[in-house]
Nucleic acid binder design. Structure first.
Lengths: 89, 89
DNA sequence: ACATATTGTTGTATATTTACAACAATATTT
DNA sequence: AAATATTGTTGTAAATATACAACAATATGT
């Protein structure tokens, strides 16, 4: 019964929307794959709250990517520049 | 006001105790470093509940290790065997 | 052996995440 | 343009994580 004043814990950034769209699936479908309510995906994508570590691991499994690639304490760089920097190395 | 029937979400495994002891610090001190109540560390070490992703990231920062090295959906292998396998590659 | 620090246990309160429903807004398809 | 699917919004309930206190149990240091 607490509807106001959320997100006292530090806000995290994520690439869920991007990763989901790259794979051409809706929130509903993603939600089904990780066994969570489809509205929960919306909350996460909008950054209205942070996931549990469990949920983060489930996303990690579905996307086949490390948690740190999906979530970050710092704003996400565009994938394009990440790729560019990586190939420069 | 819910004291019974916890942990419906899948149990995670972790190496917090090990990593903390390797660094020779108490729960109290670890708790202070990551800005959490010292009893919370106890709950995590005992696996009585899983952390938020936020808390996992904080531990990751303090230990300077990826989240996946600290937490896992599978029981943790001894570090010794992880090291051995790594050097064999 | 004693003092002190660390860890475990129980109990309660609060915060945050997740579920779910209903419906509005927007986009996509036909 | 109408039908359908997807996303956003608001409201409420339930589950899970975190804080905190008090005290027992265990370990550690002297």
């Amino acid at each position: 019964m607490y509807y106001i004043c959320r997100m006292k814990s530090k806000k995290l950034y994520n690439r869920i929307t991007l990763l989901r769209q790259e794979r051409g699936i809706s929130r509903k479908e993603l939600a089904e794959r990780i066994g969570v309510n489809f509205q929960t995906i919306g909350y996460l994508e909008r950054g209205e709250y942070n996931p549990s570590l469990n949920l983060a691991f489930n996303l990690s499994e579905v996307f086949e990517l490390p948690v740190e690639f999906i979530f970050s304490t710092e704003p996400m760089k565009p994938l394009s520049s990440e790729l560019y920097n990586k190939s420069k190395k």
